[in-house]
């Protein structure tokens, strides 16, 4: 079980403040959709609020600026003595598979670069998958036992981002 802590998260550099009114307990084998309008702060939430809380876990973060991150992926695979495929999809998959102990996967608008998404066997091997997507949620995510949505809203384009969590589905084994 992973708990997203409640509170007020002040981020002076992006100039935003994230508020979560109550802690959120996220069971194992959950997919969590991070939703909100363009510019509301989804990536800032992932990098400055969520990632620091996932310190105890091994996290794979596929960023929105994948065109920059691919070079980090190539260098990482090279230093692990793994082959770095030339295609983006194969490269990301190879990079993910090279970290066999990772339990958390974060995908920031990855469907922009890979509309068909990652293979189900890769996605479902993670305990928690957080994803940001403006497109229709792929059916594979419904195979997770639990589904949640974190809705980010910024009233009147102010500096405070409200976070509301909704449970979409929950199935027992």
């Amino acid at each position: 079980m992973f708990e997203l802590q409640a509170g007020r998260f002040d981020l002076p550099e992006p100039g935003l403040c994230f508020e979560l009114p109550a802690p959120v307990r996220i069971p194992v084998h959950s997919c969590i959709a991070v939703r909100g309008e363009n510019g509301v702060g989804k990536t800032t939430f992932l990098e400055h609020v969520l990632l620091p809380q996932l310190d105890a876990y091994q996290v794979l973060y596929v960023a929105q600026d994948i065109d920059v991150q691919v070079n980090t992926m190539r260098a990482t695979l090279a230093f692990l003595d793994h082959q770095a495929p030339s295609g983006l999809t194969d490269l990301v998959q190879a990079w993910i598979c090279a970290a066999s102990d990772a339990s958390v996967l974060i995908l920031d608008e990855f469907d922009t670069y890979m509309p068909q998404g990652l293979p189900a066997e890769i996605l479902l091997s993670f305990a928690w998958v957080f994803f940001v997507s403006h497109q229709h949620t792929p059916a594979v995510y419904a195979r997770f036992q639990h589904g949640l949505a974190v809705q980010l809203t910024r009233p009147a384009h102010g500096q405070t981002v409200q976070m509301n969590v909704e449970e979409l589905w929950s199935r027992s084994r």
Binding site: V59, D65, A75, T76, L80
Partner: peptide, 29 residues
Amino acid sequence: RHRFFMDISPHFHHQRAALLKKLCATIVA
């Protein structure tokens, strides 16, 4: 940005000279 990605990457956990490998990989990237 490359340093940030490398800092959060779990790929070199439990590896010998992990910090050095991360630094070198950042420079290569």
